[in-house]
Amino acid sequence: MSDITSQQLVVFSIGSEEYALPIGAVHEIIRYTEPRSVTSDVPWIRGVIGLRGKIIPIYDLAQRMGLPVADADFGKIVIVETGTGQAGVLVGDVEEVLTVTSEQLEAVPTADTQTIESIAKIDDRLVILLNPEGLFSSGSRVDELAAV
C-alpha cells in the first residue's frame, strides 16, 4: 500500500565513512583549493573561497560531525545550495551518484536530526544521508556567524 519513492544521492567519503547529500542540494563539485582563513568563533568554518565572482564559505564537515580526519584527506569541495545561498563542504572524494528507494532509508533515532536525515542501507554499506538545510540553517552556528 505504501508508495515507494526514489531519490538520487551524491555519495562522498570523509575519512573511512560514507556520507551523502540529495542531488538536488548539490550545486557542483570542485577540486580542493585551500580556503582563505576568516576569523570565526565557529571551529568548523575553514574559511572562504572565491568561485565565479561569489564568496563561498567553506565548512569542515568532518569537524562538524565530530570525526577525526587529517587535512590531507580532503580532495574535493562539494558546493551545496543552502536556504541562504551556497556553501562548500570539504570531503575526501566523491564516490558516485546513487539512486535509493524510501525502503532503503531508515531514520536514526539517536542521531542529531539537524545534521543527519537518515541512513541508506545499500547492500552491506551504510551511507549517512545528511540534511543540507540542517547543516547550515537556523539554530545552527552558521546563523550566529551570519548575524555577526
Rank of each mutant, 00 (worst) to 15 (best):
S2N: 12
Q7E: 14
L9Y: 03
L9R: 08
V10T: 13
F12H: 06
F12W: 08
S13C: 11
I14L: 15
I14H: 06
I14S: 04
G15D: 05
S16W: 00
E18S: 13
E18V: 07
E18W: 00
Y19R: 06
A20L: 10
I23N: 06
G24T: 06
V42E: 05
I45Q: 02
I49M: 04
G50Y: 04
L51F: 04
G53Q: 09
I55E: 06
P57N: 02
I58K: 03
Y59I: 13
D60E: 07
A62N: 04
Q63Y: 03
P68Y: 04
V69C: 07
A70N: 14
A70K: 10
D71K: 00
F74P: 01
G75I: 13
G75L: 11
G75N: 07
V78Q: 02
V80N: 03
T82L: 04
G85K: 06
V94Y: 02
E95Q: 14
E96Y: 00
V100T: 09
T101L: 12
T101G: 14
L105M: 10
E106F: 07
A107G: 04
T110P: 01
T113H: 10
T113N: 15
Q114K: 13
D123S: 12
D124V: 13
V127F: 02
V127Y: 01
L130H: 09
F136L: 10
E144R: 13
V148I: 11
